[in-house]
Amino acid sequence: MFLNLLFLTSALLTVGCSVAVLAVKNLMHACVFLLGALIGIAGLYATLGADFVAVTQIMVYVGGVVILMLFAVMLTGGKDHVSKTQKLKSLIPAMGNKTSYLIGCLTALVFFLTQGYLVSKLLGSIEVQKQVDTFSPTVQELGELLITNHVLPFELSSVLLLGALVGAAIIARPRKARPQYEEEAEEHH
């Protein structure tokens, strides 16, 4: 019962906030709704028994990524240039042409049929559990897996993070502007 309640609230939070990210005009509000959606996803992880992943999600996204996003929106003004006057017709070249609609529908139909066939072939042999009741702590097992079976990606991700840290620092560092007189001297030449 707890689980169902948690699932329903998390699912509502996730779906509602992610739709709000799409719908709201103000980018700052969109960032806050993204925060809500990410917390909702953490709740969904918790209903799936993934306790460590859920808390990591909160730790990384709430403590890091969302604050970075808020900073970026604030530093860049937060203007979004969605213009209502632009119509779909002027944006997409083949809009309003019957042949292109027909071709589009056919493509979508073929695509979905192929996908459905492939998925049913591939997943037909897989057994999906209707309901899994037991929850077990995952931390110890995750730690063991990370340093045995998945040790290469684990170490590579540390290199990636170091690279991202150094790269972000170098890119965002304010470079010394060239002094005014040098430019003027170049213009005279």
Partner: peptide, 8 residues
């Protein structure tokens, strides 16, 4: 999650 943080 790690890669998303680095990407952001």
């Amino acid at each position: 999650i790690v890669i998303a943080a680095a990407e952001a």
